[in-house]
Design a protein around this nucleic acid. Structure first.
Length: 381
RNA sequence: GGGGAGAUGGCGGAGUAGUCAAACGCACCAGACUGUAAAUCUGGCGGCUUCGGCCUACGAAGGUGCGAAUCCUUCUCUCCCCA
């Protein structure tokens, strides 16, 4: 009991605050190890960072991964994951894993679901079968997954959306948060090392964000997430909402900006006081031929790279940059060879993790703002 | 030597008198992607353009017709069958 209490208390330790921005350095302790923050989590919705093996993910220096409870609930399902003894063993990743609830699928699979008070009615995108997801069920399932950090079911709205709709939606998200917390408390003793975050919604209405933050923080979660951001709104709005909401969160708890983002979005968000990120961009865009570098973005399928025998990024130490050229990777994309997708995914994840690593150093040296602006000035879109 | 079929934009291949700068693929050229229904999706793809059009085009040259990728004549080439 004592141990458990101490573990709860020290889940996040704020180590340092940058003197030129709101950026912070922290240490996050999970059941599967400690993680320095700010931290970027590659997204492995289906218990796999698409195209990359666990070894390759490790070679990118990624520490914590993200997976999706809704997707894993549909496939392979509860029974398999129970028998596999949880997601870590199933996917052979012994580092920390966060699982999202399926709140984002309320947004992305809008045509296939109906939000009701009790939960969400989903038609499976796989076979059309009907499923009723409740906050309790999602917590129980994440309990079976054994993820280090779980997210409660929430409603992620699209942009733009009317104030009325946001108000109605916030009631549901708050109700679900309370029920999630209650279900979380009931979980089995051996799984008590799992953590549960609260999610602040409210779209772009700052006063509604304020109310939502007060309500969710009032429930006392292990960490707080800002959700419903980067769902189609312009970049300035993303950051206005992020900064405003981050300021409403307790300083000593970890802050997670859900689904963000591009390299520039992440740096801005770090300066706004965010500690955790996840995003599909490095892997999805990587599979579509876009590479991220210290000088900007490259569309590697484009003709100018046909005879470009430089690595993706001369400054990068990843396997792809150490061993292969842009011309070769372009050729792989051109011929639809799988290795191309893998190399760019690997490079992008490596780059994202490195960018955050370098950001941490800049924060520790109290020059984050300068670092961020220098990066921006060199970064070509 | 005799008989038959056919030649369409970078390639494959529709179209067989007007609504054709020509379907559809492929190739090529761009763009998008932010808690992943995504190795996906969107757009462009003869030339010029003041974006209204204009010019050049369906093997070549002639012809019929208001009008031809589409019909006729000749030529060139390709493929198939028989000797």
């Amino acid at each position: 009991m004592e141990n458990r209490k101490r573990f709860r208390k020290t889940m996040f330790k704020l180590l340092h605050k940058d003197k030129t921005s709101k950026a912070r350095l922290g240490l996050l302790t999970t059941a599967h190890g400690k993680v320095c923050t700010p931290c970027f989590m590659p997204v492995g919705t289906q218990a796999t960072i698409k195209t990359l093996s666990a070894d390759e993910i490790k070679s990118c220096n990624a520490e914590m991964l993200m997976a999706n409870a809704y997707h894993l609930y549909l496939r392979p399902g509860e029974e398999v994951l129970k028998k596999a003894k949880g997601i870590h063993k199933f996917m052979s990743w012994d580092g920390p894993i966060m699982t999202d609830s399926g709140g984002y699928q309320i947004f992305s699979l809008a045509a296939l679901r109906k939000v009701k008070k009790g939960g969400v009615e989903f038609n499976s995108h796989i076979d059309g079968s009907k499923h009723f997801m409740t906050p309790e069920k999602i917590i129980e399932f994440q309990n079976i997954l054994g993820s280090d950090i779980m997210m409660p079911l929430d409603e992620c709205l699209h942009y733009p959306v009317s104030r009325n709709n946001v108000e109605e939606s916030l009631k549901i998200t708050f109700d679900w948060a309370k029920r999630s917390k209650k279900a979380f408390r009931k979980q089995k003793a051996e799984n008590r090392r799992q953590k549960l975050f609260g999610i602040i919604q409210g779209s772009t209405y700052l006063d509604l964000r304020k109310v939502a933050a007060a309500e969710i923080v009032g429930l006392d979660f292990d960490g707080y997430a800002i959700g419903g951001v980067a769902v189609g709104e312009p970049s300035e709005l993303i950051h206005e909402v992020t900064e405003y909401t981050a300021d409403l969160l307790p300083e000593k708890k970890v802050r997670y900006l859900m689904g963000v983002g591009t390299p520039l979005d992440m740096l801005d968000a770090i300066a706004e006081g965010i500690d955790l990120f996840d995003c599909v961009v490095p892997t999805r865009n990587g599979r579509n031929g876009q590479a991220f570098t210290w000088n900007g973005e490259l569309q590697l399928r484009n003709a100018p790279f046909k005879k470009d025998f430089d690595p993706i990024d001369k400054k990068c130490d990843c396997y792809a940059c150490k061993n292969h050229t842009r011309a070769y990777i372009r050729h792989l994309f051109n011929t639809e060879e799988i290795l191309g997708l893998r190399l760019v995914s690997l490079h992008n994840v490596y780059f994202y993790v490195k960018l955050i690593e370098v950001s941490r150093r800049a924060i520790s040296e109290n020059r984050f703002e300068e670092f961020k602006e220098e990066f921006r000035s060199r970064y070509k879109k």
